Amino acid sequence: MCLTRNAAPWPSIQQGERAVIEAAMIWNEPNNKSHWNLDLDPDWSIYADTAIRAGQAIAAINPQLTRVLGGMSPIDPAWLRRMRDLGVLDHVDVVAVHGFPLDWNLWPIHAWPEKIAEIEREVPDMPIWATEVGVGSFGAEEVQIFGLKTTAKLLLDRVPNVYWYSLFDLPHSWGAETRHREAEGSSYYRHFYMGLIREDGTPKPALEYYARHADKMGLMQWFHFEDPRLDDAVAWMRQLGVRKLRTGLSWADSFRPGWEDWFDRMMESLAGFELLVTFCFTPEHLGVEAHHTSCARDPQEFADFCARMVERYAPPEPSRDARHFIPEATREAAHANS
């Protein structure tokens, strides 16, 4: 495979083609202070209430859609027991783990099977997905190659779904989603080197090794509001033969002007991939604190957002068969002309 960006435009989405949402994740890393403000919810009781409401709302719209507990980071059996005690596991179908043993975690990469086994012992009747795994090139690009090859060897035949983080390096001008910034030392700067493709659009050596597993190992890629990288991401993923993608729909973004157009465009562009969509990020005006990591003042409002997104992009199968996803503006125009 020649791993250079294909200069020719990709064919437009065929009429009726749509993204296939196979699962919905309820928040991202709720046991990580970078993504959930533990000062506001030290015992996770508010997150539990939020997740239960969201799980119920998703199932009410589409009971066939797989519900995934927010991927835990760190991998923590005690936190999972807390979720079970609070009743959360009755409203999700999958438990998810995130791991970065060569960048942030305090365990060696070869401990992946042991880490999976720790969680399996807690929930022997539930599938475990590795929804965010990765190794950055901050130290050396050879380290990323080693990490990708080792992760693939240890996990692809161990758990049903694995998602590599990420396709693109995070642009330095954007800043990383973390609450403690430079206080992390070099750990903060590692956020900008987790991609397989550099900020300037050139592939790293590890991309060639990822391509060998692209049909089995999904990608995890966040897209910011009106992200200019979306089209390039789609082109790269199609060239690589990627089947599965994890991304997010931001509750906070749903209050921006033009959010419907952006969400529709993103979902339309991702047609042909099997999607795990993460619902997260609190709008500042709805949080206990004016920050996207804050718990909501009213957790039901987050559940209502999840329900709206499922209704819009992942209706139950009979609806999917009868009416493929068409952006709202297109549906309204067709109705007006009928």
Rank of each mutant, 00 (worst) to 15 (best):
L3P: 01
L3E: 03
N6R: 12
I13L: 06
V20K: 13
M25G: 10
M25R: 03
I26T: 04
W27L: 11
W27H: 12
N28D: 14
K33Y: 04
S45R: 12
D49Y: 00
D49N: 13
T50S: 13
I52E: 01
G55H: 03
I58L: 10
N62Y: 13
R67Q: 10
R67Y: 06
V68I: 15
M72F: 12
M72L: 15
P74H: 12
I75G: 06
I75S: 10
R82A: 10
L86F: 06
L86W: 00
D90K: 05
H98L: 09
W107L: 09
W107E: 14
I116E: 06
I119N: 05
E120K: 15
P127Y: 14
V133D: 03
F138G: 00
F146H: 15
K153E: 15
L156T: 11
D157V: 01
V159A: 09
W164T: 04
Y165E: 03
S173I: 04
G175T: 09
A176N: 07
A176W: 12
G185V: 09
F192C: 11
M194P: 00
I197H: 05
T202E: 11
T202G: 02
P203Y: 11
R212P: 00
G218W: 06
W222N: 10
H224R: 15
R229G: 02
V234D: 04
A235G: 03
M237P: 03
K244N: 15
S254K: 08
R256S: 10
P257H: 06
P257W: 00
F263S: 04
M266I: 09
S269I: 01
L276I: 11
P283D: 12
E301C: 03
C306K: 12
R308Y: 01
M309S: 10
R312Q: 08
S319Y: 14
R320W: 06
D321Y: 09
E328N: 02
A329Y: 08
A333V: 01
